[in-house]
């Protein structure tokens, strides 16, 4: 199968964009969610934003640090990739890759 990130899909994954500490804090988490919805909605119809949060138990949770953006169509996702890749979010340089839709739909954020 082709490597993750090279085939265009409706789901965009921003890697290493948020820290575990930020996500633990409810307020920070809400702020991040809002920032994502506003900015990433500019590229097309954004239908879902998933930001995996760390387990309160401290066990490792899959996908923490990443942000998943699901668009209504591949074109919007591709546009968002062009517009977001390399931008800075909270000081982190965003890397945007396409994420397999089937994995995303299954709630598999391991990547």
């Amino acid at each position: 199968p082709p490597a993750i990130g090279t085939t265009a899909t409706k789901v965009l994954c921003l890697t290493q964009v948020v820290t575990e500490d930020e996500l633990k804090d409810d307020e920070d988490y809400q702020d991040i969610l809002e920032d994502m919805k506003i900015e990433c909605g500019k590229f097309g119809s954004l239908v879902n934003v998933v930001i995996p949060r760390p387990n309160p138990t401290g066990e490792p949770a899959p996908g923490v640090g990443k942000v998943f953006l699901e668009y209504a169509d591949v074109e919007s996702a591709a546009k968002a990739r062009g517009g977001l890749n390399g931008r800075k979010f909270g000081g982190n340089q965003v890397v945007a890759i396409f994420y397999p839709e089937n994995k995303f739909n299954q709630g598999d954020y391991e990547g």
Binding site: I32, D35, R87
Partner: peptide, 8 residues
């Protein structure tokens, strides 16, 4: 203020 930096 958004965490997004201004567009490069």
């Amino acid at each position: 203020k958004s965490r997004w930096a201004d567009d490069e």
